[in-house]
């Protein structure tokens, strides 16, 4: 019997050796080297752009948060039929966009709603969110901008439009006993324009805005 490996078997062994060798280069050396360089050159970015207040990490500059509070019934947190706590917008803070990531802004479960433009669920949600936002901010329903009504792609969108931030100014000023002018100035300071004047859209980072708002007190 011929004990030499057949050409076909040799071919597959070569394929396996090739995959292993390329894995060592492209699957280990490359990502490890990139991590080393990234951690040396841009440690803050590479770790996740964490934001700190005092000695406490309060989140990431890039990852949005829900600014909600638990609904209390007789001093106890209200829960829904699944046992999850029911939350409502915290009027002391600027609100983020609707989120489809888990129960909202959950980085372990990033997602868009994927609802189509004619889906009744999205139509109803849009109507309801407009009414809720208008009531919360005490403005005409027509002045609530689109990003307040529609969920982002990641469910972690850290930004809102300048329009949505401005809509929330009177409510924040009222709740925090600050002048509207002061809050409006704060919003204006936090607006990031389009990069180079034409890339992407202008926006406001909600976590940064709320951190600055807490600095302002009220």
């Amino acid at each position: 019997m011929d004990t030499r490996t057949s050409p076909a078997v040799q071919q597959y062994l070569a394929a396996l050796r090739t995959l292993l060798a390329l894995t060592a280069i492209l699957g280990l050396a490359y990502p490890l080297a990139m991590t080393g360089i990234a951690q040396a050159a841009f440690p803050g970015n590479a770790d996740g752009s964490f934001l700190r207040r005092g000695d406490k990490t309060v989140g990431s500059d890039l990852i949005g948060q829900a600014f909600t509070r638990p609904v209390l019934v007789n001093g106890k947190p209200k829960t829904d039929s699944d046992g999850n706590p029911v939350v409502e917008p915290d009027p002391m803070y600027f609100q983020s966009r609707p989120s489809a990531a888990g129960t909202g802004y959950d980085p372990l479960s990033t997602s868009a709603s994927n609802l189509g433009p004619e889906n009744k669920a999205l139509i109803d949600a849009t109507r309801q969110r407009r009414a809720t936002a208008a009531k919360l901010d005490g403005v005409a329903p027509s002045s609530v901008p689109p990003d307040a009504l529609l969920a982002s792609g990641s469910g972690l969108d850290p930004h809102i439009s300048p329009a949505y931030a401005r809509v929330q100014v009177p409510r924040i000023a009222r709740e925090r006993h600050l002048s509207q002018a002061r809050v409006r100035t704060l919003v204006n300071q936090q607006i990031q324009g389009r990069s180079l004047g034409f890339l992407g859209e202008s926006r406001v980072n909600v976590l940064e805005l709320n951190l600055a708002l807490d600095e302002l007190g009220g």
Partner: peptide, 14 residues
């Protein structure tokens, strides 16, 4: 109803 095709889109990209 919402006024823009922003469902599933990020604010920074538009």
């Amino acid at each position: 109803l919402a006024g823009a095709s922003m469902e599933g889109k990020e604010t920074r990209f538009g």
